[in-house]
Structure formats: C-alpha cells, structure tokens
Write a protein that binds this DNA or RNA. Structure first.
Length: 258
DNA sequence: ATGTCTCAGGGACTGAGA
C-alpha cells in the first residue's frame, strides 16, 4: 500500500491539484497539512467523488490537517493528548490492513519563524509534547507512521546551502536534537532507508526562483515505527507536483508498505 | 535580494504567517 503526505498550503486553492494527484498516484492514504479550512468547509463531496474518505481537524486561515483514505478511518483522535493547543496541527486514525491495523499520525509541526521568536519556543515545547505522547502511542499502536511537515531539515544533506542555513530556524541544533528524540523512540526516516538522488528536497520558497534553482529543504517526512520500517519497500518525493500550475510550495512524499 | 503566495478584514490595500 502507498501512504503519502503533502503540505498543500490551502486546500481550497489546491483542491484541483490534490484531486489530480490522487487520480495519478492512487495512494491508500494521503495526509494533508495547512488545509486552512474549518471542518464545516472541508470539500468532502469532491474527495468522496474521487473515491476517498476524509477526516479533518481544521481552523480558519492557518494550520489544519486531514487524513484522506480509501478505507474508513477509525479511532480518530485530534491533537496531542495532554498538550492544550488552540492550533489544529495533529490528527490520528487507524486503518485496517491485511497485516493488521495501521496507525496514521498526520502532523504539521510549528514553523517557529526565527530562533529568537516566541514561536520558536512554542515549536520546541510542541515537539517535546509530541515525542512524549508518541512514546505512549507506540505502545498502543506498534504499526505507526508519523507523516507530515516537520519544519525541520534533519541533517545538512537535507539543505541546499547548509552554511547559509546554519543555526537558522528549520535547521538549528535544538530542532535537530528534538527530531532525533523522535528517532530515539525507534522511528525511522523512511526516505533515508533507500538510495536517493543528491540534493533531494520537499520544500522550496516561492521567492527567488528557488524551485528552478533547486534551493530547497527536505522538511516533509515519513517516520515509521520499527515494526513498519521492515515492511517499507520504497520512499520518494514527487517533484513533478511542484511543476504544475499554481503549485504548493511543498512536494508530496510517499512510501510503499507491504 | 523582505524578491511569493494565501488569507482576513473590509470594501483598496495592508499585515500576518510561512
């Protein structure tokens, strides 16, 4: 089965591109971030017409996450248990598979703005809460995949110009330490389990012709629990989705699970 | 290189967030 994640930067604007991508790539699961829609405005009709179910946790203007799936999502949970957060950034659900239930956690990690911002402190607190919560979730759901926009480039090879980005938000050491705390739960970065092209990124700033010059960062990730990582046979970034008319600034990332 | 895109408020543009 194929599971995927995509920061769409407004589902209202990006709906045609999302429907096109679903039709072409036929994922079993697609996690969306930055839907920027309240649940009552979610385009459920168009999604269902495309053959998918959807659960969402949205708000007006900012943030918002959703899980699209072929089969009906079960045990849907919104947010991080024990972390009071007005921002809609996490939705989780279970999906039946032949190998047993698959737990999907769709996350939109705070951007942090800059390392001297109060939003950066919020980002680090948020990541600590996510990690603590996931430790318990993994006990409950051993076949767990965490997909989303992490707003962290894990290593220098995930950055087009590591020197320019050194100690900047998305690349700073405290963020990378927080990311490694997630890995320490036994999670595996699916993308790095396979040989990949050099200079592989998932996000490029709209400005400065960044995409055309491939000046990007790899911040959209799929982390798999140990049990699931064994069954992963491929992982890749779909740069083509960044070449379409009116693209998101992010490209989708997907992986294959047996 | 504060250079693009999206959204809300409010009825043209500005500011916020990314």
């Amino acid at each position: 089965m194929k599971i995927a994640t995509w920061n769409v930067n407004s589902l209202k604007v990006r709906l045609p591109q999302v429907l096109e991508w679903l039709a072409t790539h036929q994922p079993d699961v697609l996690c969306l971030q930055e839907t920027k829609l309240e649940d009552k405005n979610f385009p459920i009709g168009a999604i269902e017409a495309a053959g998918y179910r959807a659960v969402s946790s949205g708000q007006k203007t900012y943030n918002g996450v959703a899980i699209l799936s072929r089969s009906q999502a079960q045990e849907v949970v919104r947010g991080i248990d024990g972390f009071d957060d007005a921002q809609q950034r996490v939705i989780s659900a279970s999906l039946p598979t032949p190998s047993g239930p698959l737990r999907i956690v769709c996350a939109y990690v705070p951007n942090g703005q800059s390392i001297d911002s109060d939003k950066y402190r919020y980002k680090l607190d948020w990541l600590a809460a996510l990690t603590g919560w996931l430790r318990a979730e993994l006990q409950q759901h051993p076949r767990l995949a965490l997909l989303g926009d992490f707003n962290i480039a894990p290593e220098d090879r995930d950055v087009h110009d590591p020197l320019a980005w050194k100690d900047q938000v998305l690349c700073s050491e405290p963020e990378r330490v927080a990311f490694r705390e997630l890995l320490a739960l036994g999670m595996v970065d699916a993308f790095r389990r396979f040989e990949q092209p050099e200079n592989s990124y998932s996000w490029w700033d709209y400005r400065m012709m960044a995409f055309r010059r491939n000046r990007g960062l790899r911040i959209d990730l799929i982390l798999l629990s140990g049990a699931l990582a064994e069954s992963c046979t491929a992982c890749g970034i779909d740069k083509e989705a960044r070449r379409v008319e009116r693209p998101s600034d992010h490209a989708p990332v997907s992986c294959e699970l047996i």
